[in-house]
């Protein structure tokens, strides 16, 4: 059974339709990459999976169970957690407190604060610092660590590398195998197409609220991807 299935989902902001009839299937253990131009609807799709947006039409199945009308906190309980666009760490909380908030639902699993500090050693000395004072890269590591604290089966990552130095991006991508080993499937939205395609097992290219192309990266040509990305 697939871990996540989105079936014919259409999502709206008030009257504005942001997603049209989306179909996606994510298998356990995958790194599923979503790419696409600004405003294509990638973040909207992740928010729909997380539950802050609800599709007007269509269904979302997690582990074969419909989750459409579950509030976000119930989905976290099932094992869906998020690294939101823009990191969104809690600025007035310390690094350590941010991680503890990630564990709010008490899901059992391999991730603890120590495991996160081992994965991102740069966070350890910052434990007691307010998150508002961290650099962009530190905040991103914290946002990922916080999501892992929920012991997710599926982690939703939005624009993990945006605005970060190449060495930081490298470190974040280096963490992916550890996540997979710990039973966490990755659904990642990425601007840095070249980089993400080297690790992804599946890619979906969004164009104006629709999926213009999807498949296994090694079976797609650069021309196909460029065409789908720009809609030419």
């Amino acid at each position: 059974m697939s871990l996540l299935q989105i079936e014919n989902a259409s999502v709206f902001y008030e009257d504005f339709q942001a997603l049209y009839d989306i179909n996606i299937t994510v298998e356990e253990g995958e790194i599923f990459a979503c790419i696409g131009a600004n405003g294509a609807g990638k973040s909207t799709m992740l928010k729909t999976v997380a539950g802050v947006l609800v599709p007007k039409v269509g269904r979302i199945l997690f582990d074969g169970r419909p989750i459409d009308h579950m509030p976000p906190y119930k989905r976290v309980e099932l094992g869906i957690s998020s690294v939101p666009e823009g990191r969104r760490v809690f600025p007035s909380l310390t690094v350590h407190e941010n991680l503890l908030i990630g564990a709010y639902r008490n899901r059992k699993g391999p991730w603890t604060t120590d495991a996160v500090y081992d994965l991102f050693p740069l966070l350890r000395p910052l434990k007691k610092r307010q998150a508002s004072g961290l650099s962009g890269g530190e905040q991103q590591a914290l946002a990922i660590g916080r999501a892992l604290m929920a012991n997710p089966r599926l982690i939703l990552m939005d624009e993990v590398s945006l605005g970060l130095a190449p060495v930081v991006i490298k470190r974040i991508y280096e963490a992916f195998p550890t996540l997979l080993e710990n039973g966490c499937t990755i659904l990642v939205v990425e601007q840095d197409v070249q980089h993400v395609l080297t690790v992804a097992t599946h890619v979906a290219c969004f164009l104006e609220g629709r999926i213009a192309l999807q498949g296994v990266p090694s079976e797609l040509t650069n021309e196909q991807i460029t065409a789908a990305y720009f809609g030419v």
């Binding site: 802050v52 976290v76 957690s81 998020s82 969104r88 760490v89 909380l93 916080r146 929920a150």
Partner: peptide
């Protein structure tokens, strides 16, 4: 802690399971 998180960023707090 949850109170403070909600106060900081409501949507992020919801995404964290609050």
């Amino acid at each position: 802690r949850a109170f403070r998180a909600v106060s900081d960023d409501q949507e992020a707090a919801r995404l964290m399971g609050i």
